[in-house]
Design a protein around this nucleic acid. Structure first.
Length: 344
DNA sequence: AACGCGGGGCG
DNA sequence: CGCCCAGCGTT
């Protein structure tokens, strides 16, 4: 196995990736990067990394912020529980613990993130197994569906003695991210191709995970007034963020009745999540909150609240419709720009 | 072990 | 379109 490690380390020295958090020493900044990278491509994480750290440069700054401010900084990055967990974590500890075992106890840190922070920030000899490492090891050892436990043991056994553990973890991840790609890997460029047991059929290792994408028919109700749009705090999906009322399409008539409005159809919006395909009918109605005094204060400028992308699409659609009708749009208009309304 | 949870880029 | 991404928490 020494040959394996030497070949990879030599390759890494010649092909380093330049990333904003590469070489970072501050454990907090490493943590933010690793949490952002959970199920998120590096290219997508980078702008959020800068924005979040500019807003909350230290654990203390994060601790003293409100959850809503934190979610606002996270807006657009997805998997918003990550932001919630980071905020909660900041309340729980004065400083980040320095061991894998302690890090693993923190909210939002699982085996991968705890290992990444422990090795990168504190030099602990612990292997970090992410999707890249899973794929690399599955191919090297020709494993179609390796258990997480097995992968951790394999990765742990590969940690070189003389090398900084954090560096080594990045070596494997970099190989997976740039050479050992999910589809059409560059085996001819791979430093460990001669040792790879799965080289003959890389598409077979690891095997595909089955997924079940279901469709959902929803409706959104955009109630707008001079002071803004009626927003509520969302629960369940997008919990903690804000949005207009969103519900199964078949509940439309009931919800319309309960609000006492007479809405018009403003078009349709599609939004895809990993496991869901959402088709949202957008309805708009003028509203001043009459007959619902407690709701009146919920008429706000959506630009001030953390919104999921889906809600941005819904508002944009509503706005385009209103503009097309020659109706003065709500304050949100300037923030996002108006696309022409396209019927159907 | 299976599922819910965003958003985006690629072939 | 389907696939997958520097995963985690819950059941």
């Amino acid at each position: 196995m020494e040959k394996f490690q030497e070949a990879l380390l030599a390759w890494y020295r010649e092909n380093p990736r330049s990333l904003p958090w590469r070489g970072e020493k501050d454990p907090y900044r490493i943590l933010v990067a690793e949490v952002l990278l959970q199920q998120t491509r590096t290219a997508q994480a980078i702008p959020y990394y800068y924005r979040f750290l500019a807003r909350f440069p230290t654990l203390k700054a994060l601790r003293e912020a409100s959850l809503e401010e934190v979610l606002k900084a996270w807006q657009g990055a997805g998997y918003y529980r990550r932001a919630l967990h980071l905020h909660r974590l900041a309340q729980e500890v004065e400083a980040l613990p320095r061991s894998y075992a302690e890090l693993l106890k923190l909210p939002g840190l699982g085996p991968y993130t705890a290992a990444a922070v422990a090795s990168l920030a504190f030099g602990e000899r612990v292997a970090a197994v992410d999707g890249n490492v899973r794929r690399v090891l599955s191919r090297v050892f020709a494993l179609e569906n390796p258990a997480p436990r097995l992968l951790r043991n394999l990765a742990q056994g590969l940690l070189p003695q003389g090398e900084a553990p954090g560096e080594w973890n990045q070596v494997l991840m970099d190989l997976g991210a740039t050479v050992c790609l999910p589809r059409r890997p560059f085996c001819s460029e791979c430093p460990v191709a001669p040792l790879c047991q799965g080289r003959a059929d890389p598409g077979r290792y690891p095997g595909a995970r089955r997924r079940n994408v279901r469709e959902e028919a929803l409706a959104a109700l955009v109630l707008w007034g001079r002071e803004g749009v009626y927003l509520e705090r969302l629960e369940g999906r997008f919990a903690g963020l804000y949005g207009v009322p969103l519900f199964p399409q078949e509940e439309l008539s009931r919800r319309v009745r309960s609000f006492g409005v007479n809405p018009r159809f403003a078009g349709e919006v599609r939004h895809t999540l990993t496991h869901r395909r959402l088709r949202v009918e957008v309805y708009v109605a003028p509203w001043d909150g009459e007959g619902a005094a407690s709701r009146r204060e919920q008429l706000v400028d959506p630009g001030e609240k953390p919104l999921p992308k889906l809600m941005e699409k819904v508002l944009r659609q509503a706005q385009a419709f209103l503009a097309h009708e020659g109706i003065l749009p709500f304050p949100h208009a300037k923030a996002h720009g108006v696309k022409p309304f396209e019927p159907g």
